Amino acid sequence: MTSDSQTPLEKTTAAPRVLIVGAGAVGAFYGALLHRGGATVEVVARSDAEVVRAEGYRIDSPLGDLSFRPTAVYETVDAAATGGGGGPDYLVLAVKVLDDLDRAALIAPAVGSATAIVLIENGIDIEAPIAAAFPQAPLISGIAFVGARRTAPGCVQHQAFGRLVLGDYPRGIGPASHRFAALLEAGGMAGKLTDEVVTERWRKCVWNAAFNPMSVLAGGADTRRLLAGDEPLLRSLMQEVCDVAAAEGHPLPEPLVSASLASTRDMPAYKTSMALDFLAGRPLETEAILGNVVRAAERHTTPVPHLRTLYGLLRLRAAAQAA
């Protein structure tokens, strides 16, 4: 069950403190909304830290000028933990889910006794390591439907969308989720609350597991080129994801595949996050976006011939890129 309405907590005298770890295009965009919504926003920006500290973020958006200056800018999570004066109310993790990154160890120094962790990341089965490492912390899983890209240090172009679907992991909607959604709404983008966030992850995966890998194998092609090139293949890939989701106990509506393809045809040509990473020579989220779906299919002996082939080809392409 999902709900577009929120029941915000009563206002507190202190603005909630939000630390964003992974303040690239997506992290900076949601940081700007939280800042406009009344939160005190701090960021771990790594390579962009010097520019952001001096000039803030410049964010061009259909919503208007979302530019803002974070309250504090850190190069590392350790520095944020030392300089922040205790754990934040919310720690937003918006890094890529990569095989060689221990995300729990990354954020551990900054997680306080009253910190809620918010994951704004792609993929399936990405929450479990964080939940295991921080059993005392409310864990909010966030699924972002947003087109945004970094154009220069500290500069972000928000191209389209922005909706964030939120819910407690593995299910439910707690006070921390309500308050976070209320901050987003106050900042100009309503957060959609759901008590079945894992199902919502599978819903997004139907698009992600098809378009992201295909965009890489097509050399960084945008959505228009992919649809023109082989829409039937995209449809088959998406249907296989639906079959795996159902086997996992998360059945999705029958018209979802056709509706997703139709909405993609209607939007401007768009390069997926994986295509952008591929073109920039960055590591790909192969396992989180596609590999975990194939492994789920294996657990249930669900036939996924197209996804399995795509996974093998993508791994070969990633290995060639890394060589």
Score class of each variant (00 low, 15 high):
L98Q: 07
T194D: 10
D266Y: 11
L316S: 14
R295V: 04
K96N: 11
L91W: 10
G187N: 06
P253C: 13
T76M: 04
M214W: 09
G112W: 02
C155F: 09
P268G: 12
A288R: 02
G87K: 01
G162E: 05
T264V: 14
E185V: 00
H250S: 15
G38Q: 09
V52A: 07
V294H: 03
G220C: 09
G219L: 08
R171C: 13
K204T: 04
R201E: 07
A228G: 15
A15I: 01
A128R: 14
A318E: 15
A104E: 03
R265Q: 14
A114T: 14
I59F: 01
P129M: 07
A79M: 07
A23P: 01
A28Y: 02
A128Y: 06
R295G: 02
D102V: 07
R225C: 12
F145R: 09
L93C: 10
E200K: 12
E298H: 14
T272C: 08
I20C: 06
A262E: 15
A176I: 08
R282G: 02
A14Y: 07
P135V: 01
V97T: 13
D195E: 13
T115E: 05
F145Y: 14
L183G: 02
C242N: 08
R308S: 12
G87D: 07
G312D: 07
P16F: 00
P303M: 06
H35L: 04
A320R: 15
V156Q: 05
V197F: 08
M274L: 01
V257R: 09
R282Y: 09
V294G: 06
G229L: 13
C205K: 03
S113H: 10
A114K: 13
G220Q: 09
L256V: 13
R315Y: 06
T82M: 13
K204P: 08
A94H: 03
A23W: 00
E55L: 08
A296Q: 08
R203L: 09
A49Q: 11
M1K: 04
A152E: 11
E55T: 11
A15Q: 03
P251F: 12
I173C: 12
L166S: 05
R58G: 00
W202V: 04
G291M: 04
P251A: 13
A133L: 06
S67C: 00
H178Y: 14
R295K: 14
L183Q: 03
G123C: 06
E121S: 08
G147F: 00
I107W: 05
A186I: 06
S67A: 03
R179G: 13
A262I: 03
W202N: 04
A186N: 09
P138H: 02
